[in-house]
Design a protein around this nucleic acid. Structure first.
Lengths: 210, 210
DNA sequence: ATCTAAATAAGGGTATTCCCTGATTTTTTA
DNA sequence: TAAAAAATCAGGGAATACCCTTATTTAGAT
């Protein structure tokens, strides 16, 4: 029997995961905590094999909590729960010894797979993020559901925008019309799901396109 | 019997809400949709009284979807599901005629209360967000030691800009004049040495201000 | 209590981005 | 070689950002 505990300040997530795991043989949810303090208080008594740990907690951040937990309970496997926006956190948590991470829009199968993986001593890294995070080298084989593939020209325009150039300046730099630059910019924004140039640069940096 | 449907691309949320409402008398979850398209396709057939609608959907945004839904099905009550980051969206959705909103870290009681409220024809606005909106909860930037000398307000404006909000939207979020927002933005750019908002966000991310 | 930094606000612009539409040419890929 | 993707260009207008200046009110520090 694998014992699971969850720390998340969203009751919805707590309920959701519990519900997902209900009826799964050999897995039992033994604890559900809403913040770091509660986790530290109750986890010893519940003695879970795995703790699913939300990164955004109200009291202290997931990084500090994971450090403390790993120090006190080195036998517990930690899986970070995260939205994909939290990439930088995840990186740091992995460095701190967290055993895996899951996107919050995970499904039941992945959840179970993650648990088996970390229990076997391996790291669990969902491959869609994994590619983005650790695979700095552009691996074109991966189905880039999350990493939008910009064309060469779009990439150039993106870089130019990130250099604070105006449309006019970019057009002069690349020897194309300002209208073309605008088209490229719109297409980049569309591909990245950004509402404006600020979002474009933010997302591009998070996805390591810059 | 109150019929509920849910639109959210996170299976966790779907499961969580369904699980929360299970066993509640007079409430039944009749539909669960993962995106806007599915919602539009299936909602007529399911004919829920209330739709819980996530604001961040993969295909189109919650604002557009709520507009469409309210036009086609004016009798349906819409409750926006949101993280607190989405304050500006919520405002716009309320303007569009949405009947209430819930934080995703809601609990069962609030959920049920929200439903009863909107069914009675009133708006449901959870008071914790209300307080947040009114008080302008200071963002927790405890470790401001390393950072350039941005003031608290500048920090808030910076974050808002990074969330792709316009000057107008930021002014509504922070309850200050658009001109003040512009002043803050100018001062931030000046402090960071950026030529425009793009540079501002880029530098801010590099300096880990975001 | 006084001084100072911060936050607020506005006028009056100019520059730039954003958005939609529609289109032609070039390059890559199946 | 045909089809698809990429790159090119444009008009026209709305929305937003950018810039400089000045000024009052508020809050924090000595």
């Amino acid at each position: 029997m694998i014992k699971i505990a969850i720390t998340d300040d969203h009751p919805l997530v707590l309920k959701g995961i519990t519900s997902m795991l209900e009826g799964t043989p050999n897995i039992k949810v033994v604890g559900a905590y809403e913040n770091a303090m509660q986790t530290l208080e109750k986890i010893e008594n519940d003695s879970p094999d795995i703790l699913l740990l939300d990164i955004n907690l109200p009291d202290i951040n997931g990084i500090d909590l994971s450090k403390q937990l790993l120090k006190k309970f080195p036998e517990i496997k930690l899986i970070a729960l995260t939205n994909f926006e939290d990439v930088s956190y995840v990186k740091r948590m992995l460095k701190n010894g967290v055993h895996g991470y899951l996107l919050k829009n995970t499904d039941r199968l992945e959840l179970i797979k993650a648990m088996k993986t970390v229990l076997s001593g391996e790291l669990f890294l969902p491959d869609n993020i994994h590619a983005r995070l650790l695979n700095q080298a552009p691996n074109k084989t991966a189905d880039s559901g999350l990493k939008p593939n910009l064309t060469r020209r779009e990439q150039e325009v993106l870089v130019a925008i990130s250099e604070e150039l105006t449309t006019q300046e970019i057009s002069e730099k690349l020897f194309i019309s300002p209208k073309t630059v605008e088209t490229h910019r719109m297409n980049i924004m569309s591909k990245l799901g950004a509402k404006n140039s600020v979002g474009m640069i933010k997302i591009a940096m998070e996805k390591q396109l810059l």
